[in-house]
Design a protein around this nucleic acid. Structure first.
Lengths: 203, 203
DNA sequence: GTCTATATCCAGATAGAC
DNA sequence: GTCTATCTGGATATAGAC
C-alpha cells in the first residue's frame, strides 16, 4: 500500500475516468450548457472545486469525450472496411454491432448521442468543433465506399452510395437518440429490417 | 395609416411571430441554454429588453415553439390516419411529405430538430416537458396502428408494429438532424428506399 | 488530495427615460 | 413601443486552509 509514484498515477487516472464517465452521462442527458460542473462533482461524489485539479475547464472535459468518441468510432470503421468479407456482410455486421451496442451498453448509446448532439449544436468549444470537422466524415466515407463496391456486383441498390451511407448513419443516429431518451420503450429492431433499405428486391 | 386597435394588434402579432421565428432557428442551431435572449433580439433587430414585452421569459418562447411544433405534427398524423387510402399508401405518403418538407422548407427541419432536441434533453422548462409527455406518443401510436392494419392483409412485414413505428420515426429524426446540421451535403433520399424497411419481399 | 470560501463574470430580467 | 441602464442570481474558476 506504499505511495509510490506509479500507484499515485493510477489513482489519478482512475479519478479522471470517473469524472469523464459522469460527464458523459450528464452531457448526453442534459447537454453541455445545462450541465454544471457541480452536477459532475456531485455525481462523482467530490467537491466542485476538485474537478479543476483534473481538467482546466468544463469545455476540456467535453472535448476529451468527443475526441474519445470519434477515435473509437473511426477505428471501428477502419477495421470494418479492412475485413476480408463481402460488402453486404460488412454492412450487415456493422448494423448488428451497432444495434447490439445500443441494446447492451448504455455507454455506447450515450457516446452516439453525444456525437449527435455535438454535431447538431453550434455552441460547442472551438477545439471540439475542430475535432468534429476533422473526424466527422470518415464514417460516411467508409460506408459510401463499401456501398459502391457492393453495387458493382449488384449486391446493393443502385442509388448513389452517398445517399445510402447517409441513410445508414441517420438511421443509427435516430435510434441512438430514441434509446437514450426512451430507454424503457426501446426495443432493438432486427438488423435485417434496416438492411432491406440497401439490398435490391430478389426477383 | 390610422392607429386603430385592430391594426395595433396586427403589428404586435407580427412582432411576436418575428421573435418566434428567430428563436426557432437559434434554438435549433444552438440549443435552449446556449441561445441568449440577446441573440434573439439581435436576430430580430431590436433591443434585448424589448423581448420581455412579448414574452415573460426565454422559457416561455421555447414552450410556445414546442407546443406549436407538436400541434402541427399531431394534426398531420390524425389527418393521415383518417385518409381513405390503404395503409401502405399512408406510410408512403407520410414518407414523401416528410422528406419533401425536409428538402424544401428550412422551418420543417428545424421544428423536427427542436422536437428531437427537446425530447432528448432533461433540462427544459417544466411546462415544455408536460407538453412533450402529453403529445409525444401520438405519432408513434398512429403509425403503429397503420402498420398493424396493413399487416392483416400482408402489406407490411410481420414484425411488431411498435418496432416498425419506432423505425419510421427514428429514421425521420435522424434525417432531420442531418439536414439541419449539414444542410449543404444533404440529399433527399427516395422515399421508396425507406419504405422497403416496412414492406415484405415480393416472392 | 480534497474541501470551503470567494472573486469574477455573464446572462436573465426589471425599471425608468424617451 | 422601444431603448438604455441597472439589478440580481447563479455558475465558472481560483485561492487558501486542512
Amino acid at each position: 500500500m506504499g505511495r509510490n509514484p506509479a500507484r499515485n498515477q493510477q489513482v489519478k487516472e482512475a479519478r479522471r475516468e470517473q469524472i469523464l464517465s459522469a460527464a458523459l452521462h450528464l452531457f448526453a442527458a442534459k447537454g453541455l450548457f445545462a450541465t454544471r460542473i457541480s452536477d459532475i462533482a456531485t455525481a462523482v461524489g467530490v467537491s466542485q472545486g476538485l474537478i479543476y485539479r483534473y481538467f482546466a475547464s468544463k469545455e476540456e472535459i467535453f472535448t476529451a469525450l468527443i475526441r474519445h468518441a470519434f477515435e473509437k468510432m473511426n477505428a471501428a470503421c477502419r477495421i470494418l472496411e479492412a475485413m476480408p468479407i463481402p460488402p453486404v456482410e460488412k454492412v450487415k455486421l456493422a448494423l448488428e454491432r451497432l444495434i447490439e451496442g445500443l441494446s447492451q451498453s448504455a455507454d455506447a448509446a450515450q457516446y452516439y448521442l453525444l456525437i449527435a448532439q455535438a454535431t447538431a449544436s453550434e455552441s460547442i468549444p472551438e477545439e471540439a468543433k475542430a475535432v468534429i470537422d476533422g473526424e466527422n466524415r470518415e464514417p460516411y466515407e467508409v460506408l459510401a465506399r463499401i456501398f459502391a463496391e457492393g453495387q458493382r456486383t449488384g449486391a446493393f441498390r443502385q442509388d448513389p452510395p452517398e445517399i445510402l451511407a447517409q441513410l445508414f448513419w441517420t438511421s443509427i443516429t435516430g435510434l441512438s437518440i430514441f434509446k437514450a431518451v426512451h430507454n424503457e420503450w426501446f426495443t432493438a429492431p432486427n438488423p435485417e429490417i434496416l438492411l432491406r433499405m440497401f439490398v435490391p428486391e430478389q426477383p
